[in-house]
Nucleic acid binder design. Structure first.
Length: 586
RNA sequence: GUUCCCGUGGCCUAAUGGAUAAGGCACUGGCCUCCGAAGCCAGUCAUGUGGGUUCGACUCCCACCGGGGACACCA
């Protein structure tokens, strides 16, 4: 925006610096923190501090330089006003021109507004990572929503994205489930709600296993049969794994997520064991079998002290572990795709595990290891800092939460939009409920624990997805009443009048999305988009309450209609990145 | 013991090292003959402690306090 003007500005600044013997470093530019006028600000403190001719304290000298520079910049094209204040140089744009340009950008781009052109190699994002034969609960939700949002942010920032899901399809938990099924549910088929049906069997299995030593022994024996390659058990395993995956698919569809590549744990077990043999031969791993496990003593190899610790790669009986499979999986990803980056969205408790895995790969000379990145997010707890666990039964199932939230949303929709069909009401209620559930998972920083409680999860007021959706609905409603389509790309945005501060704030926010997308993708911070969407909705509501649109005279009416259309586009766009639907009515 | 993360009004959260620390919940009072009140307006209240770096620190560094996590055969 205003590239010519900025260049002219840079030239004047460069001359100014040269004349005074100041370092030529470009002047930093930032937003003016006061609302109501547009422009950019430049703090002159760094220049003042570096000035060899400085006399007196830095702030005073910064103000002196700002005034001198302001004098040189008077009358520069594209700027309505230049002022020096408290050591800052403030440059104000001429409002109508700026507004016009900003709205043209949004309306011309439409739903592509803010997205960058595609560039670079693909990025793989591994997320979800659930275990078969267990339920997906609210504790898993943050991962899925976070991962999905990261993918959409990266795509908007121009990166091709491959969505990967690493499924835990083997292990004792699976054996427990299979045995319990054979013993008490043989021949049964999954109920319509697959997840709940499988979850119930799993809970039952855990109960028997924990309370009955004889039962536990039977499960262990069953595990041995599995290990020996028992055909019958293998077949049952594959069949029930499919059921489980079908259940997951229902949930992913509900959440609007999909995956391009599913990796199964069972898929990398054998290659993991082979890799360990290689590591032993190369002297990286130490083989202590049969008394002791196969380990990599990273601290010993690296000369570090209690930093990388010891990794166990195989049990003393030769069976594989979590770490065994991580290594071949990491390599497989780079074999299958020319990845520019390989991101793991996995909770913070596995930080050491990923640090170790990456280091072992580096020791092996696996160059792409440096392109692996672990996004460690904090978990979702229940009040009282209770961690959700399907084993302990301290879980909130997504279905239960969604059903309750949808019901509550539907009551409100029915009250406000009685004319809509029941199906429409239900569809809207689902979108609102899902948004309300998703938003708290991404609106705070990934390093902060989310505490789930029913009351705030079902609250559709305040800083929440429904608030943002509502602003979108109102914008849509105005456009509909004006007889306009949603995109309204050919609206003449003529801002030849004195804009008020609510209009200015709103337009200013619209212009921020493109840069924000780039930054959010770079820093892997969905919370930036989430708070932005809320700020935008708030600014729109302020505008809505302050400025009449349909009843206004020209040129306000046309300009404000264009502004409503642009705001609607950007609200919908930011919601879409967050994976939240923007209903037309609610 | 080693190490990582968190600490901002009563509660929850925001703030690329930059000007007056921004919102939400809760509480109190007000606003629907006016584009949708899931909304808007008004009011009280905050950077754990002590040092340091810097022209300038919620932000960076050190120490401490408080909370949580990770650290050899779970994943």
């Amino acid at each position: 925006m205003f590239e010519n003007e900025k260049q002219a500005l840079n030239q004047v600044v460069a001359r100014f610096c040269e004349k005074r013997g100041l370092p030529a470093g470009k002047l930093e530019r930032r937003k003016i923190p006061f609302s109501g006028e547009w422009g950019m600000a430049a703090p002159l403190f760094p220049l003042a501090a570096a000035d060899p001719n400085k006399s007196g304290p830095v702030p005073a000298h910064a103000q002196f330089l700002a005034e001198a520079l302001a004098a040189e910049l008077q009358g520069l094209a594209g700027f309505a006003r230049v002022e020096a204040s408290k050591g800052y140089l403030n440059l104000y744009f001429s409002s109508s021109e700026y507004a016009q340009k900003a709205l043209e950008d949004v309306l011309a781009a439409g739903s592509a507004y803010g997205s960058q052109p595609q560039s670079g190699g693909p990025v793989m994002v591994e997320y979800s990572n659930v275990n078969t034969h267990k339920p997906i609960h609210v504790g898993h939700l943050r991962n899925v929503i976070l991962g999905g949002t990261i993918c959409r942010m990266l795509e908007a920032a121009g990166h091709p994205v491959i969505r990967a899901n690493y499924i835990g399809d083997i292990g004792l938990h699976v054996i427990k489930w299979l045995y319990n099924y054979e013993r008490f549910h043989a021949g049964e088929k999954p109920a319509a709600d697959i997840m709940r049906w499988m979850s119930d069997i799993y809970t039952e299995a855990e109960r028997h296993f924990a309370s009955d030593p004889a039962y536990e022994a039977e499960v262990r024996a069953y595990f041995n049969r599995w290990d020996a390659g028992d055909e019958e058990i293998r077949a049952l395993w594959l069949k029930t794994r499919d059921w489980s995956m079908a259940g997951f698919e229902q949930t992913y569809q509900l959440l609007g997520e999909h995956f391009d590549r599913i990796y199964f744990e069972s898929e990398v077990e054998d290659s993991g064991k082979l890799l360990v043999e290689d590591l032993i031969e190369r002297g990286i791993a130490e083989d202590g079998r049969p008394e002791n496990p196969v380990i990599v003593d990273l601290d010993k190899l690296l000369g570090t002290k209690e930093e990388y610790r010891v990794v166990v790669l195989l049990r003393s009986d030769g069976t594989s572990l979590y770490a065994t499979k991580e290594l071949p999986l990491a390599m497989l990803k780079f074999e299958e795709y020319p990845l520019e980056q390989s991101i793991y969205v996995v909770d913070v408790r596995q930080t050491l595990h990923f640090k170790q895995a990456k280091k072992i790969l580096e020791l092996m000379g696996f160059e792409p290891a440096q392109r692996m990145q672990h996004l460690a997010y904090e978990i979702v707890n229940l009040p009282g800092n209770v961690t959700m666990s399907s084993r302990d039964g301290t879980v909130v199932l997504l279905d239960d939460l969604l059903r309750e939230a949808s019901q509550r949303a539907q009551n409100i929709v029915a009250e406000k939009n009685a004319a809509l069909s029941l199906e429409q009401q239900q569809e809207i209620a689902r979108e609102v409920a899902l948004g309300a559930i998703k938003y708290p998972m991404i609106s705070r920083e990934t390093t902060k624990v989310v505490t789930f409680d029913w009351e705030s999860a079902l609250d559709f007021n305040g800083q929440s997805a429904p608030y943002i959706q509502y602003a979108h609905v109102r914008a849509n409603s105005i456009l509909r009443k004006a007889g306009l389509g949603l995109e309204a790309a050919d609206l003449p945005a003529n801002f030849a009048y004195e804009l008020n501060s609510s209009e200015i704030n709103l337009i200013e926010l619209l212009t921020e999305l493109p840069d924000l997308i780039v930054r959010a993708a770079k820093e892997l911070k969905p919370s930036l988009i989430a708070t932005y969407a809320y700020d935008l909705a708030k600014a729109f509501n302020d505008f809505y309450n302050t400025c009449p649109v349909l009843g206004a005279e020209e040129p306000q009416r046309g300009a404000r209609l264009a502004l409503v259309a642009a705001a609607r586009i950007v609200l919908e766009k930011s919601l879409r990145i967050l994976g939240i639907d923007a209903p037309q009515e609610m």
